[in-house]
Amino acid sequence: MAKGYVAITVERCKGCAFCVEFCPTKVLALSSAFNSKGYHPPNVVAPEKCSGCDLCGMYCPDFAIFGARYAR
């Protein structure tokens, strides 16, 4: 069971892939689909690995992604 989650605002993404590259547990990958501006937003490929560290949120220059831990 994943400790955390990432939420992606697809339409705000500019496809820089900082989140994909620097995710410590490699939860994300760039999607092959486009958003309405023609960028490839990230896609969650390994949701169970997410620790909710929010490093993706720290790196995202477009404020389009953030991570958090589930409240338990």
């Binding site: 989650y5 990432v6 999607s31 689909a33 958003n35 937003p41 969650v44 949701p47 997410c50 958090a68």
Partner: peptide
Amino acid sequence: EMECVMEIPEDA
């Protein structure tokens, strides 16, 4: 494909 498979709390 872009839909997130994760469970995201509503107040997040």
